[in-house]
Computed example of a mutant assay.
Amino acid sequence: MTQSASTLINAIAQHAKSDLAPMVTAIDQGQYPEQYLRKLGQLGGFSASVPQAQGGQGLDLSVQIDATTLVSRECGSTAFMVWCQSTCAWYLLNAANNAVRERYLARVASGELLAGTGMSNTVKHLAGIEKINLRATRTEQGYEVNGSLPWVSNIGEDHLAVVAAHVEDEGYIMFAVRCNAPGVTLRRCLPFSGMEGTQTLNVRFDKVTVSNNDVIAHPLQFKAYIQRIKPGFVLGQTGMGLGIIEASIESMRATNQTHSHVNVFLDDQAEDLAAELQTLKAQVADLARQAQTGEAPLLDVLKARLATSELALRATQSEVLHTGAKGYLMNHGAQRRQREAVFVAIVTPALKHLRKEINDLELLQAEAA
């Protein structure tokens, strides 16, 4: 790790312990940590993969994943919002059109403008899992968008959302929209069992005007653009899982100071999980550096993301079993991390989604061989 990367990571780690750790229970119960996120943006917590000339740290995606991992050690919900914000910066960095990048990238990268990614429905649609929810028609100045998205996280009236829509007979567009734009309506969702502090809202579009200056990719650009951003989109989520795993292992080790004589009979031991984690982290870091330059093999990316979900589920279940009744108390991190790990396994691309895409790609490779 370079000195500049080390300086960034150390600052984020200290900030997470001093400012985030005391708020974790409140965030889990529904408090949106807006001021923490804005300060994290000022520290560079969303912009490791963004060049300095465009308002970033000039590092790469592997360092951004390290930053997300550090936040996730303290709070998986907040790490998810770090992924939302840094991924919106990733979208804008790689935008096919200069105007939208110049308009928003530096402000999103710094946390001045908070942003949510509403691409779950589109990613599932492109994988053949569900129909796309937003529809767009061309206008003289851009597009008019209608439809609704059930869950978009890290958004509010003064935030930005990045979403995609189907254009009849043309394909798809991806665009940025202010959440207080005319025709955009935000509505509360039913309470979640976890991730309540992520400000996840229903977003409805009623004849929303999207100018060409806010379009990230037009229909003819969309396919190549999605292929470019998808590895980073998927890999960025691994930081959420990796941090949860690290925190679970640390908790297991602490419990073993008094209960190792009985915990030894459990299936997953801390040191075994730690060894698997180190191998996985090395794989993710290597793929992230390749994704930064557009060279990461998608199949390997999907497998790394799948392995992160599976290991997070195992580690958090083992932590609860190691800690016993204490870990089942609402004031203990074990039960919270278990809920957060389940989220890592169901957020798009979910574990079942990943397995489907991996299967589809492997079949295509076998047919081509």
Rank of each mutant, 00 (worst) to 15 (best):
N94E: 09
N94I: 00
A95N: 04
A95C: 06
A96P: 01
N97A: 07
N98T: 15
A99T: 15
A99E: 15
V100R: 00
V100T: 08
R101L: 12
R101V: 03
E102F: 10
E102L: 10
R103V: 02
R103E: 10
Y104G: 02
Y104L: 06
Y104Q: 01
L105M: 09
A106Y: 05
V108F: 03
V108Q: 03
A109Y: 06
S110G: 09
G111E: 04
G111F: 04
G111C: 09
G111Y: 06
E112A: 14
L113I: 13
L114P: 02
A115S: 15
A115E: 02
G116I: 02
G118F: 06
M119C: 09
M119A: 12
N121R: 08
T122P: 00
T122V: 13
T122L: 12
V123W: 01
H125I: 01
H125D: 07
L126I: 09
L126N: 03
L126A: 10
L126E: 06
A127V: 01
G128R: 00
I129H: 01
E130W: 02
E130G: 03
K131C: 10
K131T: 13
K131F: 11
K131V: 08
K131W: 04
I132S: 10
I132E: 11
A136G: 06
A136R: 00
A136N: 05
T137Q: 13
R138C: 11
R138I: 02
R138S: 12
T139M: 07
E140R: 10
E140T: 14
Q141S: 13
Q141P: 00
Q141L: 14
Q141D: 12
G142P: 04
E144I: 15
E144W: 07
N146Y: 09
S148N: 11
P150D: 12
P150W: 07
W151P: 05
W151A: 15
S153H: 00
S153K: 02
N154M: 01
I155G: 06
I155A: 07
E157F: 13
D158E: 14
L160Y: 06
A161E: 11
A161V: 13
